[in-house]
């Protein structure tokens, strides 16, 4: 059991920004980064064009590597491991990891991000990685000259569909409603794309294939009529949900699942526990807003720790 003043769970833009601020404040934070998901969502993308300070754009993994280096430069410790349990207990939160480490922390920052939503169809899991994918930039390359489909109607679905026409012979964009939710600019780009076909007012009701995807059943949301769509790839882009499994039941969550914080602060319903990034944000969910809220969380945690008397501090290394 190791005692820490501050443990940050998550190493996306929110977690690493919190680590930079906390480390510069001398708190020697421990970042539990995740093992294979360290760096967060931006590890699965290519060019990030809207993060300030990079006029030519920057590769997602490169940006996250820089954030990690910046946090470590000021003394943050980064552990590539997954938190398995978190017991919230004021001034002595307890954490165990998949590799068997145990920590107590006076303050905790939760920056666990969000996870892709699944369609919930039979065979979806079996065929995941065998034609069914959640990441166009990761897997698009393998569908050269094939016919594929994207499900979803928001910005990310339309962006994925447009991106995939670089490789695929044809991309069908399947959306439940008659109109896409995506922004006008995004829609116009998509409509001008000759390889993109819109399959509106439709939903995927079945996925077919034994060891690789062979096709989909699509039902009209208007009259229920079904038809088969033979595709070798299906990209699911129907949104994401906050990753709260570690603390659901211990902290207040909103009805839509996001972690509740107080006003513009990062304070959750428990003393000494702070939230940052996509896990508290149902609206903006961008790298820069996640980074901004990481700064807020580190600042709140620093205030919290400085107001505790020395005897209440859970640490041998202050």
């Amino acid at each position: 059991m190791t005692d820490k003043q501050l443990v940050i769970i998550g190493s996306g833009p929110a977690g690493y920004t919190a680590a930079i601020y906390a480390a510069r404040a001398g708190l020697v934070p421990l970042v539990i980064a995740g093992s294979v998901t360290a760096g967060g969502d931006l590890m699965t993308t290519t060019e990030v064009e809207n993060f300030p300070g990079f006029p030519e754009g920057v590769q997602g993994p490169e940006l996250m590597e820089s954030m990690r280096a910046q946090a470590e430069r000021f003394g943050a410790e980064v552990l590539y491991d997954d938190v398995e349990t978190l017991h919230i207990e004021p001034r002595r939160h307890r954490i165990t990891t998949a590799l068997g480490a145990e920590y107590t922390a006076t303050a905790v920052i939760l920056a666990t991000g969000s996870a892709y939503r699944e369609l919930g169809l039979a065979e979806e899991k079996n065929l995941s990685g065998r034609g069914v994918s959640w990441c166009a930039t990761c897997d698009g390359f393998f569908f050269k000259d094939q016919e594929i489909a994207v499900v979803g109607g928001g910005d990310s679905a339309v962006e994925e569909a447009t991106f995939l026409t670089r490789f695929a012979k044809k991309v069908s964009l399947i959306h439940r409603r008659g109109e896409l939710r995506a922004s006008k600019a995004m829609r116009q780009r998509a409509e001008a794309d000759p390889k993109l076909e819109f399959v509106l007012d439709s939903e995927v009701t079945a996925i077919h294939g034994a060891d690789k995807l062979e096709g989909l059943t699509i039902a009209s949301t208007a009259d229920g009529q079904t038809r088969e769509l033979p595709v070798t790839g299906l990209f699911v882009a129907i949104g994401s949900d906050p990753r709260t499994a570690l603390f659901a039941g211990q902290l207040d969550l909103r009805p839509d699942g996001y972690l509740v914080v107080e006003g513009r602060s990062s304070r959750t319903s428990a003393e000494g526990v702070f939230g940052a990034g996509d896990v508290i944000d149902p609206v903006y969910r961008q790298a820069i807003t996640a980074a901004g809220s990481g700064c807020v969380a580190a600042t709140d945690a620093e205030h919290y720790l400085s107001e505790l008397s020395d005897s209440e501090l859970n640490t041998k290394e202050k």
Partner: peptide, 9 residues
């Protein structure tokens, strides 16, 4: 592949 973030992990 070199461009695959999760592969690096």
């Amino acid at each position: 592949a070199p461009w695959c973030g999760p592969c690096r992990m």
